[in-house]
């Protein structure tokens, strides 16, 4: 058998060499063998798939590990994002609150025909007997000294100093503050003064015999033309009648959120325009009084 194979070796080689050349020429020059090639490629496809299988397996294992690693990375990233978003949400809550309070503030001026402006509290000063705050509106916005300042739930105070871009607000709890009020129930007119920051207000010069009860709402009376009338100032929470003393001690709790609000309303009170005229009239009345007194004294002297 060995001999047989070797004998025809040369012949075989020549045959196969020629066969190869024919194939090469045909495949190179014409597309005829395309079908044969694709057919045989399909036949060898199982080879390819099987040869790929270990690599595919390794890739899948690798991607599992990668997926885990990716998940961990993604998780860390998401946690960080979550933290940032939470912080933003907190800010949003604060903004929402501010929005609500601003709306309330504006609503409280719904009936007003007077001009209003929203001002922001920039700084507060609450030491000793001083209860003041700095507002972010000033001369540029036509703020004037004595201008009334409202909160969303009541009178806050008045402007005591005006700078170019800022102004100073004196709260009604400041010891130098005095607000003319009227008892809504009885119509009794009086003055509410401040006793210091974080302390309640005091209704002064009320004799024991006056009709004041706990729970009475005190609103601005409009007298003095500084504060517009009808705004709540405080509620009576305690009445102390002192024996031996002429006046009662009346403790009033302010209705405005003096220490909570960050936004306030500046009011251009239409009646304020009348202030100048009214004070002139007041001066005239004083003068008339003085003249009349003088007249009576003269008459008495002359009468003898």
């Amino acid at each position: 058998m060995l001999f047989n194979h070797n004998q025809y070796l040369g012949l075989r080689v020549t045959f196969f060499v020629l066969l190869s050349i024919i194939f090469m020429v045909v495949d190179h020059r014409t597309p005829e063998l395309g079908t044969l090639r694709s057919l045989m490629s399909d036949a060898t496809a199982p080879f390819q798939y099987t040869a790929n299988w270990p690599l595919d397996l390794m890739n899948r294992i690798k991607s599992n590990f990668n997926a885990k690693h990716e998940l961990i990375t993604e998780n860390t990233h998401l946690k960080m994002q979550n933290l940032l978003l939470k912080a933003k949400v907190q800010k949003m809550l604060a903004i929402q609150k501010e929005n609500t309070s601003l709306k309330a503030l504006l609503k409280s001026t719904a009936g007003l025909k007077d001009k209003v402006a929203v001002a922001q509290l920039l700084a507060v000063n609450m030491e000793g007997y001083v209860a003041q705050a700095v507002l972010d509106k000033g001369k540029k916005e036509n703020v004037y000294v004595g201008q009334p300042v409202l909160g969303s739930t009541g009178i806050m105070g008045q402007v005591v100093q005006v700078n170019r871009w800022t102004s100073r607000l004196m709260l009604i709890t400041d010891t130098r503050s005095a607000v003319p009020v009227v008892d809504e129930r009885t119509g009794l007119r009086a003055i509410v003064i401040g006793t210091g920051p974080f302390r309640p207000l005091s209704l002064i010069n009320i004799p024991d015999t006056a009709d004041v009860a706990v729970g009475d709402v005190l609103a601005t009376s409009g007298l003095g033309l500084r504060y517009p009338e009808g705004y709540p100032v405080g509620i009576v929470i305690k009445i102390r009648k002192r024996t031996g003393q002429q006046f009662s001690e009346i403790v009033v709790s302010p209705t405005a959120h003096l220490y909570r609000d960050t936004q306030v309303l500046l009011l251009w009170h239409s009646r304020a325009k009348l202030m100048k005229e009214a004070s002139e009239e007041l001066e005239n009345m004083k003068q008339e009084n003085k003249d009349m007194n003088q007249q009576i004294i003269d008459r008495v002297r002359d009468g003898g």
């Binding site: 196969f16 090469m24 495949d27 063998l33 045989m40 490629s41 060898t44 390819q48």
Partner: peptide, 16 residues
């Protein structure tokens, strides 16, 4: 077939 080369190329080389 597997390498996508011209048919007969490697066949010839193998033969020789």
């Amino acid at each position: 077939i597997l390498n996508g080369t011209t048919l007969g190329e490697h066949a010839l080389a193998f033969t020789l």
